[in-house]
Computed example of a mutant assay.
Amino acid sequence: MAAIQSNPNVSYHMRSNSFPTASHPLVSQFEEHLNRLKSSASASSSSSLSHKLSGLQDLQDSTDKLLQLSTSQQVLAQDCSQKCVDELLDGSLRLLDICITAKDCLLQSKESVAEVQSAIRRRGAEAAFIVGAANYLASRKNVKKAIQKALRNIKGIRNDLIVKENDMLSMLKETEAATVSTLESLLSFISDPKGQSKQSRWSVISKLMHPKRVACDSQEIGINEFEKVDAFLKSAIKQKYASIDSFQGHLENLEICIQNLETEVECLSRKLIKTRVSLLNIFNN
């Protein structure tokens, strides 16, 4: 399954030459990172998603560097109404909330994977594996509920992503829009990526016991690491099938995927906090 695409309603606008630092190297750097993020491939795999998250971190770095410029600080301090200030600060807090949700979901997923691995090590009896599989799927259900709630909140955030006339505000809104879009892709990737028909999905599930076939089929339709494990465990429980030879590789790949995403999201979280602190310093001085 492919992760959802960036929402077409979230627009990215270029700045006018009236911005005081239009000729500053940091502005060119910002636009380069923004354009690169816009043109990056859709997050249909863990590697493409990690690349997208890394690109977002670069954009956040550029944004914060711009916020350190005296001209940028003057523009924001002088031209922002109280409503505008509240919007920016609320927006930065909401991004952090979404990021925290993603971190929590990844942590819960990692713990669930560890439980399944423990059950496999104790698989002297088929029941141990089946219980571990059932607990994993129950945890996944909770993760998906949390993500669906976060995705509904994202829909509300989009309504506030309106670019202002002020160029510095425009840049901040563009960064917020890019962050929302990327986090939306991340959450959908973890939860249940869209874009695959039920027939194709169940075709893969029926072949998960045959690693040579599923390796090809899963690549063709874009099934990701989370769903490979989900599919195998659902099938194992339904068929009371406890042979996990072909499953070990999927579980190890998911573990690596989660670890890589955790690293990227943790870095992004720190950058979001840094940007929020910069905004608070500007508006409190």
Results as ranks from 00 to 15, higher is better:
A2H: 10
A2S: 06
A2E: 08
A2K: 11
A3Y: 03
S6G: 05
H13W: 12
M14V: 04
F19G: 02
F19K: 05
H24K: 12
L26S: 08
V27A: 06
E31R: 03
L37T: 02
S40R: 15
A43F: 11
S45T: 12
S50E: 08
H51S: 14
H51W: 10
K52F: 11
G55D: 01
L56H: 04
D58A: 13
L59E: 11
Q68R: 15
T71L: 12
L76T: 00
C80V: 00
Q82R: 03
E87N: 09
G91L: 04
L93H: 15
A102T: 11
L107T: 12
Q108G: 02
S112E: 08
S112M: 04
A114F: 11
R123C: 15
G124M: 07
A125Q: 13
V131P: 00
G132T: 02
N135I: 00
L137W: 07
A138E: 08
A138N: 06
V143N: 08
A146S: 14
Q148L: 09
K149P: 04
L151T: 03
N153G: 04
K155F: 10
I157K: 00
D160R: 13
I162H: 07
V163E: 05
K164G: 11
K164D: 14
N166P: 14
L169T: 01
L169D: 11
L172S: 02
L172I: 13
L172W: 00
K173M: 13
L186T: 04
F189S: 01
K194Y: 08
Q196T: 08
S200G: 03
S200I: 05
R201E: 11
I205Q: 01
K207T: 07
C216D: 02
Q219V: 14
I221S: 09
G222Y: 02
G222A: 09
I223H: 03
V229H: 06
D230P: 09
S235E: 14
A236L: 12
I237C: 12
I237F: 13
K238M: 08
F247T: 00
H250C: 02
E252D: 05
E252V: 10
I256L: 10
I256F: 08
N260C: 00
E262C: 06
V265F: 00
R270I: 00
V277Q: 09
N281D: 09
I282K: 07
N284R: 07
